Amino acid sequence: MTTSNQVTITSSELGNLWMTFQEKTMLMRFLEHFLEHAEDQNTQQILRSSYDASTQTVETIINIFQQERAVIPTGFTKNDVNKGTPKLFDYLYDPMFLHMMSKIEVNLFALFSTMSYRKDIRQFFNQLTSNSQQIFDQCSQFLLEKGVLARPPYVSMPKEVAFVRNIHYLSGYQLLKEARSLNVIELSQIHHAIETNLTGMQLMVGFAQVANDHEAKKYFVKGMKLSKEVETKLGEYLRKDYIEPPATHAGKATNSTVAPFSDKMMLYTTNLLSTFGLGSNSLGGAFSLRSDIPFTMARLGKKVFNFAKEGGEIMIKKGWMEEPPQVEDRRQLTK
């Protein structure tokens, strides 16, 4: 992919490649467990397509690191997935999980592309964005056809252009009357946050059942409760407008207590999703014109931040957190 006359990759390109390596090697371990138990032929095809693309991505990053004479990260290996274990998640959870991850990847790799300066690295992340978009489309269509992906609510189409005439439009807290109903931008952000959180909540249930480390198990139970709180708080906004929050009968954790994944990888996955949850909350709050919604998003975001921080501390204590490449410390030169 690279040639000897290309410039050295920048710090941002190095960091983004390193993060991609971690995420993709983690995803491959999940897909290995899912593929072991996938019975539906269409599901197998989607999972296999994602697995092959992830494998190619990891091989490309290794090649870049070797040409740059950089050490190859550890990431997550075959030691982080246990073959022959019972299925941890039930009906259609595997494409639901991949739907969530590909949604995250589309945004992540598009961002990484804009942070890249060398042409081949930009092209690499552009291709990853396209690959993830294809997987997302496949998962979305498949889940919609199965009837397990809740569509956002339908609303009446606008017949004329309107302009805001009253500053109370921005207020979510009014003493004498109800706040205005949600607009479609606010509704879409809340729906998206709940939809993603439901998939994450079942992940926490499964992790809590199978974790071997006692501290990790308690942490995943805390994640279950936090996910429920997020769904409840955001769902209240929809219910006040007589809209039912998204829900699905599929994708539940089984009753298995045998861990298919290492505690290290389950903690990393939880930390990764919590971090993206923070970004989603910030985005939802930023696009809302009702003052109560950003306030709620910020309060939930603080709890998610503290939860993610606690997970990082557990990983460090256990020796499970791989350190990203470090900037040279030149501060001692000033002393």
Rank of each mutant, 00 (worst) to 15 (best):
T8I: 09
S11L: 10
S11Y: 14
E13C: 13
G15I: 06
T20F: 04
T20E: 02
F21E: 01
F21I: 01
L31M: 14
Q45E: 08
Q45P: 06
I46C: 01
L47V: 13
S49E: 13
A53C: 15
A53N: 15
S54K: 15
Q56S: 15
V58I: 15
Q66K: 15
A70W: 11
G75Y: 01
N82W: 05
P86Q: 08
P95A: 04
M96C: 11
M96K: 15
L98K: 13
M100H: 14
M101N: 14
E105M: 14
E105L: 12
V106E: 09
N107P: 08
F112A: 10
T114E: 09
S130I: 03
I135G: 01
Q141S: 14
K146C: 02
A150D: 02
Y154W: 04
A162G: 06
R165V: 06
I167R: 09
Y169V: 07
S188N: 14
Q189C: 04
N197M: 08
T199D: 06
H214N: 08
I243L: 04
E244R: 07
P245F: 02
A247S: 08
H249A: 07
N255A: 13
N255K: 14
V258E: 14
V258L: 12
T275R: 15
L278S: 11
G279P: 07
N281C: 09
R290N: 05
V304G: 03
V304Y: 02
F307H: 15
I314W: 13
W320S: 06
E322G: 05
Q332F: 14
T334E: 14
